[in-house]
């Protein structure tokens, strides 16, 4: 049996969560203080994912850059590919929070959305 100690990244509480595994099968999850913690721990030992945040170049706006994120979490091993896609595009102002900037980032099926408003210059 394998025991893994994780720090939950679900929120800044950073709960210490212990997962007991047997040949890839999860036997128990303990130490979490909310449901988010259990979900994170189960995912982290089987299929770790992350939200990626960055910025995208803006044309014709009052700012040079608009902040953005993957709308949902994406597989951890896709982070570098998603960043490549983000750095390839330039978007036109105006931009509103939630606007889709890239439809399907690095074929993950997850869109990149704006997390700030940028008015036209």
């Amino acid at each position: 049996m394998e025991k893994r100690e994780l720090t939950c990244i679900g929120c800044p509480m950073g709960c210490l969560v212990t997962v007991e595994l047997d040949g890839g099968k999860i036997l128990s999850v303990t130490g979490h203080t909310c449901k988010r913690g259990e979900i994170y721990a189960r995912k982290e030992v089987t299929d770790p994912t992350r939200i990626v945040t960055s910025t995208v170049r803006v044309e014709g706006g009052v700012k040079e850059r608009v902040s953005c994120k993957t709308r949902e979490d994406i597989p951890k091993d896709k982070i570098a590919d998603v960043m490549k896609d983000i750095n390839r595009v330039t978007v036109k102002a105006p931009i509103k929070i939630g606007d889709i900037l890239i439809e399907n980032a690095a074929s993950t099926g997850v869109p990149i959305v704006a997390t700030a408003n940028v008015q036209e210059a």
């Binding site: 929120c11 800044p12 939200i51 945040t53 910025t55 902040s67 994120k69 997390t115 700030a116």
Partner: peptide
């Protein structure tokens, strides 16, 4: 918050995970 573009804000206040600019927004 405008420069804190990472996520992890707002779980207590809005019960969802936001980035800094979204929380400020």
């Amino acid at each position: 918050l405008n420069q804190c573009i990472h996520n992890g804000f707002g779980l207590h206040t809005f019960k969802e995970e936001l980035t800094g600019p979204e929380y400020a927004g």
